[in-house]
């Protein structure tokens, strides 16, 4: 019995040691830029469920969109020709914890710069000016935010600031929060809500995918998108701001905006830049 206990104690100690060895230094607090230069890789959190910005292409298994192209171009600016952009999928729901935990270095995922978020994160300058709007089925009686009454349900996405905005703009309406945009759009198609609310760019992507749904009500908020970084990553923040300026100056930025948003009816690309 004695031997047995010793053996068991040994096994337990090894398990604990194994568990503890996983706890290295806190990855979130290291200098992300220095680490990226060391590995020639910048780890980006991107959307995979948002047409035009970041959408999984089932054919190639790769994510495509404006945010993705921006991430790749910015990486080349910051790290040089050898620099690689590693893409990790996030949703509105998961992007903040992943950034805080150091799972990703930067998030470029239709993320609005807001005062609340700036308390816990750092943002670069804005790279895209969106505004919140509504997506409804063609022929819906909802034409604007004013039509959202107590009898209507609005679908939003967890972790997006559009759910907070809609609660202010239409306090009587019920807000249903789904976990990502694919689920939210599916819920709208399943008549779980009367309208889906988020930023116009994302909504135009949905209506491009399924023309039975249209964007209505104009923009009722201003949503400047920024690249989000963990608090205190000043070196990376400065490098990305410099890279953004360069991309705007050398025409790359305009080319990418035109590539993704140039031929979308009802979308004014002058407003976003």
């Amino acid at each position: 019995m004695q031997k047995w206990k010793k053996w068991l104690a040994l096994a337990a100690t090894m398990l604990v040691a194994l568990a503890l060895s996983g706890c290295g230094q806190n990855a979130a607090s290291r200098d992300a830029l220095a680490h990226a230069k060391q590995t020639d890789t910048l780890v980006w959190g991107v959307k995979a469920d948002t047409r035009l910005f970041g959408l999984m292409n089932i054919k190639t298994g790769k994510i495509e969109g404006f945010d993705i192209d921006m991430a790749k171009a910015l990486t080349k600016q910051v790290l040089g020709k050898k620099g690689k952009a590693q893409l990790v999928q996030v949703t509105s729901d998961t992007r903040v914890p992943m950034l805080k935990g150091g799972n990703v270095d930067a998030v470029i995922a239709t993320m609005t710069i807001t005062p609340e978020r700036e308390k816990v994160l750092d943002f670069t300058d804005s790279y895209f000016n969106a505004g919140q709007s509504l997506l409804v089925a063609k022929g819906s009686k909802i034409k604007s935010v004013k039509d959202l009454t107590a009898d209507t349900k609005v679908i939003g996405v967890q972790g997006s600031n559009s759910v907070d905005n809609i609660k202010k703009a239409a306090p009587q309406t019920t807000v249903l929060q789904l976990s990502d945009y694919a689920q939210a759009f599916t819920a709208l198609k399943s008549h779980q809500g009367d309208a889906l609310t988020t930023d116009n760019g994302i909504l135009y992507g949905m209506s491009q995918q399924d023309s039975n749904y249209v964007v209505v009500g104009g923009m009722f908020t201003k949503e400047p998108y920024g690249i989000a970084l963990n608090k205190g990553q000043t070196a990376l923040q400065q490098a990305l701001n410099k890279a953004l300026k360069t991309l705007r100056a050398n025409g790359t930025y305009e080319k990418l905006v035109n590539k993704w948003f140039g031929d979308i009816p009802g979308f004014d690309i002058k407003e976003v830049e």
């Binding site: 996983g22 706890c23 290295g24 230094q25 806190n26 990855a27 979130a28 990790v88 999928q89 998961t94 914890p97 992943m98 805080k100 935990g101 150091g102 799972n103």
Partner: peptide
């Protein structure tokens, strides 16, 4: 495992 453990330094891919 995915969101809270990184706060105490255990960071895992998905």
């Amino acid at each position: 495992t995915y969101f809270a453990l990184p706060n105490i330094g255990v960071r895992l891919a998905v």
